[in-house]
Amino acid sequence: MSNIHPTAIVDPAAHVDSTVTVGPYAVIGPHVRIAARTSIGPHCVIEGHTSIGEDNRIFQFASLGGVPQDKKYAGEPTRLEIGHRNTIREFCTFNLGTVQDRGVTSIGDDNWIMAYVHIAHDCVVGNQTILANNATLAGHVQLGDWVIVGGLTGVHQFSRIGAHAMAGFASHISQDVPPFMMVDGNPLAVRGLNVEGLRRRGFSAERITAIKQAYRVLYRQGLTLEASIAAMSALIEEHPHAAADISQLRDFVAASQRGIAR
């Protein structure tokens, strides 16, 4: 195909749509599937059981679908799944999953992933996230939709970051970050709500006010975690227009295994 550079090595068993562009010296393995209009930059290596959706832009020197950096990995046919319309910049490394977890590392749609980002085995990245340069996700990390992770930030294995949360530059995240929060530092601290982010995403003033009340219940009233969860349940009845938002925050906190960032 004319849109695959002659120096690229594409295994004949790979499923590459005819509209995909592959740059010079890229290497694509036999178990790779790449959907329409995705572009693969020069010197990229895409291997393993990796599927890539439509309209992605993958820049030079990215390494996708490499074996997990996990000593327990024994060659099992685990997977990497990447959705649609993602931008993946230079030198990113995304690994396959492991059989000790769900067996798949997954990245959703419309994510903006900057240079040198590492996404380890079994991570789940939602949609519309931003991962700045050198952000590092250890194994089994989960990011909700619209999460922003600042540059040089490290996220400890099994940690979760809830939807619409934002982590500042060079943060050390070793506990769960609830939805809507802004955090930064080492040790990590919650600095407030990501109000500007919510406004940009079309949250009404009434919804933001209700989320602020839930935030105060969780962080400003000196309640135990159990009491905070009960109080947020009461808020759901008081603010039906924001019931889904408060429920999301309450349920995230209630399900935390690592404890939440304070």
Rank of each mutant, 00 (worst) to 15 (best):
T38S: 06
H31S: 14
P30V: 04
T19K: 03
I9F: 08
H43G: 04
T19P: 02
V20D: 01
G41V: 04
H31N: 10
G23M: 07
G29V: 02
V16F: 05
Y25T: 08
P12H: 03
T19N: 00
R33G: 07
P30R: 07
A35N: 10
I58D: 05
G41K: 01
I40P: 00
K71M: 11
S39P: 04
P68F: 07
V22M: 08
V32L: 07
F59Y: 14
H43N: 15
T19S: 12
A74P: 03
A35R: 11
C44Q: 05
C44E: 08
G66S: 15
A26N: 06
H15T: 12
I52T: 11
R33S: 13
A74H: 06
T19R: 03
S51V: 12
G48C: 10
P77R: 01
T7P: 01
V20I: 04
T78F: 02
D70A: 06
P12T: 08
F61A: 13
S39K: 12
T38L: 06
G53V: 14
K72N: 07
P42W: 01
A14L: 02
R79P: 00
I46P: 05
R57I: 14
K71Q: 10
K71Y: 12
G53A: 15
P68D: 09
F61E: 09
G29S: 07
H15E: 14
V10A: 00
F61H: 14
H43T: 08
P6F: 04
V45G: 05
T7R: 00
R33P: 00
V10E: 00
P6A: 03
A13R: 11
E54M: 13
T38I: 04
S18K: 10
A62G: 15
S51D: 15
S51C: 13
H31E: 14
T78V: 01
H15C: 08
L80Y: 01
S18H: 06
P68L: 10
R37L: 03
I52F: 12
G75P: 00
G66F: 05
P77W: 04
H31V: 03
G29T: 04
Q69F: 02
H49T: 11
K71A: 11
Y73A: 05
A36P: 06
R57K: 14
G65T: 11
L64P: 07
R33F: 08
T21P: 01
Q60A: 13
I9G: 01
G48P: 12
T38Y: 02
A14W: 04
